[in-house]
Write a protein that binds this DNA or RNA. Sequence first.
DNA 1: TTGAAAGCGCTAACAA
DNA 2: TTGTTAGCGCTTTCAA
Lengths: 401, 401
Amino acid sequence: MKHCWHRFSQVFFAVIGSGRETTANTVEPQGRGVAADGNARGSSGRGQVTITDVARLAGVSPGTASKALNGRGGISPDTTQRVRQAADRLGYQPNALARGLLTGRSCTVGLITTDSFGRFSIPVMQGAEDALGPGSMSVFLCDSRDDRIREQHYLRTLLERRVDGIIVTGRRQDPREPVGSGLPVPVVYAMTQSTGPADLSLVPDDMQGGGLAVGHLLSTGRTRIGHVTGPLRFAASRLRAHGAEAALAETGLAMAGGGPLYGEWTEEWGRQATDALLRSAPDVDAIFCGNDQIARGAADAVRDTGRSVPDDVALVGFDNWEVIATACRPPLTTVDMNLRELGRTAAERLLAAINGQFAAGVQRLPCSLVLRESSRPRQPSALRPGLLADGPPPWPARPAD
Amino acid sequence: MKHCWHRFSQVFFAVIGSGRETTANTVEPQGRGVAADGNARGSSGRGQVTITDVARLAGVSPGTASKALNGRGGISPDTTQRVRQAADRLGYQPNALARGLLTGRSCTVGLITTDSFGRFSIPVMQGAEDALGPGSMSVFLCDSRDDRIREQHYLRTLLERRVDGIIVTGRRQDPREPVGSGLPVPVVYAMTQSTGPADLSLVPDDMQGGGLAVGHLLSTGRTRIGHVTGPLRFAASRLRAHGAEAALAETGLAMAGGGPLYGEWTEEWGRQATDALLRSAPDVDAIFCGNDQIARGAADAVRDTGRSVPDDVALVGFDNWEVIATACRPPLTTVDMNLRELGRTAAERLLAAINGQFAAGVQRLPCSLVLRESSRPRQPSALRPGLLADGPPPWPARPAD
DNA sequence: TTGAAAGCGCTAACAA
DNA sequence: TTGTTAGCGCTTTCAA
C-alpha cells in the first residue's frame, strides 16, 4: 500500500527535510488555501488534497511537484524525495479528471453488455476486466439489455465521459448493427458480431469446437456417434453440427440417428431426444450434445434405460458450465469456449486499437476440451462382461432404475 | 435518440437561423479553432466538439451556450433554440471530465465486487446498475477477487477518479473489514457486512427466509419436515436453520430427523442426506433444503426411493437459482433472496448518502417465496390410493439404484 | 534544476 | 438577456 487516504492529516505546511523553509500559515500567492478553513484539512477548497498543497508543503512549485511525482523532467533526487514525502503525508491522490481533461486520455473504457450479465457475457466481462482493471484502465459497466434505446443512452454517456474505447459483449447469435458509426473511439465486439465491415468482432469457433468433441469421442474408440443439440435457427447449433459432421466424415463415418437432432437448449429436450435416439439406434455408443444442459438430460436418459455412462454411451457437452457439468452424473466432458480468454483478448485488441493498431473482421477463437468422467475410454471388456458383444443389447427394455 | 455522434459533420460556422451572422472562416477571438486544421471537423484541437465551437456556430459566447444547453439562467427562447441546433449539428457532447472537475461531482460510483461475478454478486450488481445506469450515474466495475491488494488498488483508482460513492458487494459470509477508513466518499456494503460500526451493510434476511419456507410447507399440510443444508460454519446455514426451527416450534412441532443435517452445498450431499433422512424417518413428508442444489439432489433421491415429489415428500429450496430450480424434477419451490432488489436498494442508499442522508448498521432485507411444483398441496387422496393411509409406507426399503 | 504561466473544457459569478 | 472572467487540478512548454 503506497498511499493512505486519511483525509484529515495532522501535519501541514511544515516543509519536510531542509531547504527553503516555509511556515504553516504563509498567505498563498494564489489567494486560495486553508486560511478561511478552520477545519484542519490539508487541502484547498474542495476537501481533497491538491498538487498545490503538496508543492507548498514540499516548498516547491506545483509544476516541479508534478514532475517529481511523475518522474518527468530533470528534478533533483533530493527534491523528488521531499515531494514524495509531502504527498504521502497529505495522502495526496492525483485527480484523474483533471489529468484526463488535460491529456485527452481518460484511461477508461466502456463495457456494454447487451446480455445483462448472462451466462456468456459474464466470463467475457471478467476476462476484459482481467486485462484492464489491474492496469491503469478503469471500466465503465453498462447493461443495455438488448434495448437499443438503452444502448444509445449508454453510448452517449460513455462518449461524454471521454472513454478511450468501448467493448460490446453479447450472447452471440446473429450479427448485430454496429453500436454507432464514425465514433471517435475504437470499438471491439466480443461474443457478438457487428455487421460493420470495419469493425472487429471476436467469437468462439463453434465449428472447431464441434470437431474437437467428435474427434475426442473417436479417439476413445467410439464410432456410432449421435448429436443432440439446440434450435436449428441458432448459428451456434448449425456450426457445432457442421464441425461434428465434418470430423465424422473425415473418418468415413456417418452420424448415428441419421443426423443432428435439433430441439431446445434444455435438459428436458436432452432426455427426450436421447430416449428417441437410443430407441432408433440402440447401438449408439456416444452422444455429442450441443450444450451441457442437453448433455445432463442425456445422462439421465441413458441411465434410465439401464445403460451406463460412459461405458455404454459416452457423452460430451458444450459450454463447460461448471455447475451443470460437475453436477452431472457422471461429471461431464465438455467443450469450453474460453470466454474469459476471449474477453481478455478483446480488451487487448482494444488497447492496441487505442494505440493506433487497428484490426477488422470476425475472428474465431479456438475452443478447448475439458475432460471428465463422461467420456472416459471404455474399461477392458473383461470387467463388463457381455456388454461389448454383438447381438441384442443385454439390457431390458426399461428396468425400474 | 437526441444526438448523433458523427464526428465529421458537414456544416460549420454558418450561423443557424437569423441574427448576428458569422461566416465560416472568421478568425476566432481565442486564437484557437479549425484554422490550421485542414480536416473538415467541427472542433478545435482535440478532435471533439467543444462548447466554444457550439457557441461560435450559434453566434453567442460560451457562457451563454452553456446556460442555454443546461437550461440555467435567463436565456431567450430564440437563443436557446439556436444553441441547441448548433449543438445538434456539430454533434456536441459535453465533456464530463471538465464538468466534474469544476462541479466537484463526477457522477460516477465505484462497484467493487469481492466475489468476481459470482452467483450472488451478479444479481446485486445488476440491481445496482438498474438503479444507477439509466440515470446520470456511471458505474466503475472493479473485481477485487477477495484479494486485499487488488481491493486497495481499486480503491485508490476509484478515489483518484473522484467517484461520488462506492458499493462493495460480496458473497456474504462473515463480516469483513471496512474497505478503508475516513474515506472522502460514502460506502455501502451489499451482500456483505462491514465490521465498521459506522458503515451501512445490506444483507438478505436468512432467518426470515427459513421461516418462510417452513411456514409454507406447514400451510400445505406437511408436518414431518426435515432440513438438509450446507456447512455449519456458514452463517447462512445457521440462520436459515434457526428460522426453520422457530417456525416449527411455533406450531409445536419438532424437526424431522432430529435437527438440521449440515453438510455441503452440493447435489451430492442433497442426495446422501435425503437418503439417510428417508431411512431414519421414513414418514418425512417435506424437506426444506438450504439451497437449490441440495434440493435438486434431494428430489433425485426421493424419486430413487420410489416416492413422489411433491405428493409423498414436498421440497423447498433456497436461492431461486433459476437454472437449477426449473431443471429440477419437478420444478422447485424456493426462497428468493431478492438480491437484485437488494442491489437496487444499496444503490439508492448510496445516492441518499451522497446527498447527505447517512445511515449505518446491518439491514436485513426480506426474502420471498417462489412457488413451483415441488411443494404443491397434496392431491386428494382418492387420486393416490393408499399413500395417505396409516401403517407402514407402501414403498420398499430401497430398490437397487 | 526549478518556476511561471498557459490552458484542457466547462460553469458560475459578476458586469454590461 | 448576454458577455466576460476566473478557476476546477493538472501538465507542459518556456524562461530563468
